[in-house]
Design a protein around this nucleic acid. Structure first.
Length: 562
RNA sequence: GGGCGUGUGGCCUAGUCUGGAUAUGGCGACAGCCUCCUAAGCUGUAGAACGGGGGUUCGAAUCCCCCUACGCCCGCCA
């Protein structure tokens, strides 16, 4: 697994560090404008250090540096490093044809990362806002995996707590007639109606709150029947949530129930451990953890646990399960995240989670709320996208009728994932049907379409297998090189998006790669060219493998036609 | 009141961490491209001095300070 672009960068850095007598961190490579090469070194940063004019330094470097299979060229105070085009072209094609759909994968590491994502309360179906978390988590996990880490994807099931007590009360006391009608049979859609109705009733009748509290109490005191109620309902809703996630191509490796931490005594033990800390105080019998003026209550006056304590117990447990922890959380958990990190440190635990926060998703400018029922469910979003995709497919007549539904599903679901992942996590998203269902431009169908075009050429190609050794790879043209160069960038993008927890960069790359292929497709006939047919088949194949790898990493399905 | 985040052409968005060479791409608009491998495509035109102000610097969308708009948080809820 050698990638020319990574090797090239390594070589440049090594030689620069060797040659320049300046602190290493001053040597930063950046990306120059497209045609100048792969890497650039602005010579300003260390000009002071060397007491010399950046232009002069660049001049000297240009004269004295040589790189294998590439050139060093000065442009004012910049030094541009360009890989020899034919070398880049040849090596990348060979690499793609050899590694096939695992192109871009880096050597596997022994380090294990546990990614916690979704962890939505099991009181109703996921809505579009809640879907942001799993899409970010799953995509990041796929990126880490491709970079070589061992991955476990975990869902923390908040199967106890007030929100579940509300649902439990509803199931005990309400009849089907009390509820709004819902067509979908999935249990998450069915059960959420109880949750929503009870919340309505709570606004009218305050005495209800007492009954809810009673349920919470008996649950926390470990009442078997109540706990059983909680467990059953949580499981039913989870069944629906998991089904939706699976449809989105998101598969969890493990689930951890919040209740298990109470049942096995680890919450109780944790509260004991915390009590001995200096920054844990007491107020009317209730316990709180205090840091920088922020009080976080961890136990009630009756010493039953609160969510922060339970989540902390979960992290203590998790710390043993992996080398690194990554959590995906909504921005409303920022303060809570700080609490978890600080408290873990105080407890002497070294595996502190890295937390990726994402902003909320609004729907046409309005808040989405499970409680109020003001949302677009993920299931509806996927259904609508699938239907729209089907209409588009029908227009084009490229697909056999019996494959129609399956392909529409791949396109619809891909569109949903891509629509969510293409925006950087910390930015708010306002969900609009029209934009989400736009299958042109910066969208998953655009990417999938480029893939089917490549696939279609390869299907029609009647030649035998390519003989890589005998391929004439020297006489390449500009657009061909551009495409291959874009392909070669993949490992670099993969590392960048993984290191910075920026899955949106990979989405952007996928779009650029597809666009580059579409230009190649327009400019260079493959099957209709005589002398260059084999070479172009090799290019198309390379693209197909690279794009397959990119799409897998984004969790997008790969339709053969559309 | 305090904390965190966000503000880039009419709309959406990349770049901000790690300051640097003409600010990325999409939607929409306008003008074009299917006797040729799927036009969910491609080309061109118009459109942004990067929320406002100050500062640091040879150089600021990027760093610092102030202000402003919006979101989130500051519960013996989760």
């Amino acid at each position: 697994m050698r990638y020319v672009i990574l090797d090239f960068k390594e070589e440049i850095l090594r030689k620069l560090k060797d040659y320049l007598d300046v602190p290493e961190q001053l040597i930063e490579l950046e990306s120059p404008p497209k045609e100048r090469g792969e890497f650039a070194l602005p010579c300003y940063s260390f000009a002071k250090e060397l007491k010399n004019d950046p232009n002069e330094i660049a001049k000297k470097l240009e004269e004295n540096l040589e790189v294998e299979n590439g050139t060093v060229e000065r442009a004012g105070p910049y030094l541009n490093f360009k890989i020899d085009r034919s070398y880049l072209f040849e090596e990348t094609i060979k690499n793609c044809l050899m590694t096939e759909e695992s192109f871009g994968r880096l050597p596997s590491k022994s380090k294990k990362i546990l990614v916690e994502h979704t962890s939505a309360n099991p009181n109703g179906p996921l809505h579009v806002g809640r879907a942001r978390n799993p899409v970010i988590g799953d995509t990041l996990a796929r990126i880490y995996e491709k970079i070589g880490y061992q991955i476990e994807k975990q869902y923390y099931v908040n199967d106890i707590g007030r929100q579940m007590a509300v649902l439990v009360w509803g199931l005990i006391n309400l009849e089907e007639d009390d509820l709004a009608k819902v067509e979908r049979k999935k249990k998450d859609h069915q059960l959420v109606r109880y949750y929503q109705r009870v919340n309505e009733l709570l606004e009218e009748d305050e005495s209800l709150e007492e009954e809810i509290q009673e349920i919470i109490q008996s649950m926390e005191m470990g009442d078997k029947e109540t706990l059983e109620h909680f467990k059953e309902n949580a499981e039913d809703v989870m069944e629906g949530i998991i089904e939706s996630l699976e449809r989105l191509n998101i598969h969890l490796d493990s689930f951890k129930n919040e209740s298990s931490l109470i049942i096995d005594g680890s919450v109780e033990k944790l509260i004991e451990d915390l009590s001995s800390l200096e920054n844990v105080g007491e107020e009317d019998g209730a316990l709180y953890y205090e840091k920088e003026g922020n009080k976080t209550f961890i136990a009630r006056e009756n010493l039953t646990s609160l969510y922060p304590a339970r989540d902390l117990a979960y992290h203590v447990w998790k710390a043993e399960k992996a080398d690194e922890l990554v959590n995906i959380l909504g921005e409303d958990h920022k303060l809570h995240g700080e609490f978890v990190k600080e408290a873990l440190k105080d407890l002497g635990i070294e595996t502190i989670p890295e937390i990726i926060f994402h902003s909320f998703v609004t729907f046409e400018g309005k808040e989405m709320s499970t409680r109020k029922g003001t949302y677009v469910t993920l299931d509806d979003f996927m259904d609508t996208a699938q239907k729209k995709a089907k209409l588009e497919i029908e227009k084009r007549k490229n697909v056999e009728p019996e494959d129609m539904n399956a392909i529409a599903e791949k396109i619809g679901v891909g569109a949903v994932r891509y629509d969510i992942i293409k925006v950087q996590p910390q930015k708010p998203i306002d969900f609009k049907w029209e934009e989400a269902l736009d299958f042109e431009g910066d969208s998953a169908p655009f990417i999938q379409y480029s893939y089917t075009r490549a696939n279609s050429i390869l299907e029609k190609w009647t030649g035998k297998s390519l003989d890589i050794g005998n391929l004439e790879l020297t006489d390449s043209q500009e657009g061909e090189i551009k495409l291959i160069r874009k392909i070669a960038e993949f490992p670099r993008i993969l590392i960048e998006s993984g290191e910075n927890n920026s899955p949106h960069l990979l989405a952007k790359y996928a779009h650029e790669l597809a666009a580059e292929f579409n230009r190649f497709y327009r400019d260079y006939p493959v099957l209709h060219s005589e002398e260059k047919k084999e070479l172009r088949i090799a290019i198309v194949k390379s693209f197909k493998f690279a794009m397959a790898s990119v799409m897998d990493t984004l969790g997008l399905e790969k339709p053969k036609r559309m």
